[in-house]
Amino acid sequence: MGRIFDWIDERFRVKDPHRRFLQRPLPEGVNYLYCLGGVAFTLIIILLLTGLLLSLYYVPSEKEAYQSVLRITREVRLGRFVRSLHRWSANLLIVFIILHTLRVIIHRAYRAPRELNWVAGSLTLVVAFFSGFTGYLLPWDQKAYWATEVGTSMAATVPGIGRQLLYLLRGGPEVTGTTLIRFYSLHVLWLPLVMALLLWAHFHMVKRQGISGGL
């Protein structure tokens, strides 16, 4: 195994430039609280993998969405397991991003030169919220429908452009099949893509700046 990796790496050359990063000494006082971000990232990996599996059976159409989700839980082997894994990871992701943020606040790790990484991190939380919100509509049951009805109607309270914003979000004045497809596309293509870019930036800055030395 190791030998195969080494053979590949001799050509691919990814280990060498990262050695400095992977084998660097850590500052004093680092503890398990520094793993919270890593836990959030692990959850994102689980979401990506289980999401790819769900997309094999999910049908993003007004007529069939609900049935297809029922089919996943009732007929597909391990379907209930994969769906639950996606759901639980989605909820836990928000929890862990917030815990990670609290750790950063408490350690005041947002100070120079890490301000931009604080911004990148905050944006991942926003993207995670939107992923959760758009994903919640996909089962297309009563709860999903009303949650989206209420959630999107908040956009209408923005002064001046509220109404237009609402139409833009819903793809019309009401929550319909158009909204479902919009949310599906955001959920499986746009948001994961934005999330990947943000996380790349986030980890790149961690690599360049190192982690801050505690309090």
Partner: peptide
């Protein structure tokens, strides 16, 4: 390494069972 190896194999098996028509 063993842990990640087992995890990868288990995930692969789950994905295969899930994907194969029921």
């Amino acid at each position: 390494k063993l842990f990640f190896l087992l995890l990868t194999v288990a995930s692969g098996l789950i994905a295969l069972v899930y994907t194969y028509p029921a």
